[in-house]
């Protein structure tokens, strides 16, 4: 499982295509040929990752947009980002 430092920069992998179907974001990993679906908050995070952001910036974007405390947001976002990294859906730049 990946762990992230707040300063790590993270961005959606280039080999992904995404679209919205029936209100759900669907992503195709073109190399793996696998399809993934995001729920609403997952979609918000995924869309924010279309440009490089630090992990801390992702926390801030989510807490600004949604009614959630920082600690829970951090725990949830870390879990999501780790899962995305495991699936090669994001690239992490750990400077």
């Amino acid at each position: 499982m990946n762990t992230f430092d707040n300063s790590h920069e993270i961005v959606a992998a280039e080999n992904c295509l995404s679209t919205t179907i029936d209100g759900e974001t669907v992503v195709l990993h073109t190399d793996a040929g696998k399809y993934y679906g995001f729920n609403e908050v997952g979609t918000f995070v995924w869309e924010s990752l279309q440009e490089p952001h630090t992990v801390e910036e992702v926390y801030e974007a989510v807490t600004d947009e949604y009614d959630v405390g920082y600690d829970r947001c951090r725990e949830d976002v870390d879990e999501l980002l780790a899962e995305l990294a495991d699936k090669d859906l994001v690239t992490v730049d750990a400077e």
């Binding site: 995404s18 679209t19 992503v27 696998k34 399809y35 989510v62 949604y66 959630v68 949830d76």
Partner: peptide, 16 residues
């Protein structure tokens, strides 16, 4: 202070 209702972000494995 308009924030949207929060649910934990999820990604599930099943453009076309």
């Amino acid at each position: 202070g308009s924030n949207r209702e929060y649910t934990s972000p999820e990604v599930t494995e099943f453009v076309v």
